[in-house]
Computed example of a mutant assay.
Amino acid sequence: MTRDCDGDLPVLAFLQRAIDGTLSPDDTTHLTYPTPISRLLGFELVGVSERAAEVRFVADVSRHGNQQGTLHGGMLCELADAAMGTAHSTAIVAGESFTSLDLDARFLRPVWSGPLIARARCTHAGRTISHYACDVLREDGKPVASFTSAILTLRGDAATGR
């Protein structure tokens, strides 16, 4: 495995080590993992491969609910965005960054509480714009929502400070 000139691991290798418990305190990558928002919301990365990721979240309607008493749709959007962003980050090298261009949501059934898995995968890998799809599933495997997103890879000055 090749590290970059700063000694950082590629994102995919870093995340795989984090999942399998072999990440050492000296292992670093050029992006921040886990992200602050993922820590705040309790998201857990449970699977990762090239341009694909699975993120687990335990929904609790008493903490994440809306006025109807179901899980707030914004939580599902954030979960899917985290999974798709993580999937795309596996293709990002030092000196690059990325940003979502859009997020399209289709809500399929209500959720109250319990574990959810967001499974993100790349549907088109472009040099600049890539497309992702993500399904959010209940513990019983039934889909709760499906999402798509276009993600823009930034390079050079456009990536600086992002």
Rank of each mutant, 00 (worst) to 15 (best):
A158V: 07
R119L: 08
A105G: 10
T29Q: 03
I151K: 03
E78V: 14
H64M: 15
T35V: 05
V136R: 00
A125E: 11
G47T: 00
G141W: 06
T123M: 10
G7C: 01
A13R: 01
D20H: 02
D27F: 05
A52G: 14
A53R: 00
L12W: 00
S113D: 11
G85V: 03
D8A: 07
A94H: 07
A120P: 01
I92H: 00
G161C: 01
L103W: 05
R63G: 13
A94P: 08
R119N: 07
P34F: 05
S100R: 04
L76R: 08
L137K: 05
T153V: 11
D6E: 09
C77T: 14
F147S: 01
A87K: 02
L108F: 12
A133G: 06
A118V: 06
A59E: 04
W112Q: 15
R51C: 09
L23M: 10
P143K: 12
C77I: 13
L116D: 06
L152Q: 05
L9I: 02
T70W: 06
A82Y: 12
S89Y: 08
V48G: 00
R155G: 01
V55A: 06
H124F: 15
R119I: 08
D6H: 11
T35Q: 10
S49V: 08
F57C: 07
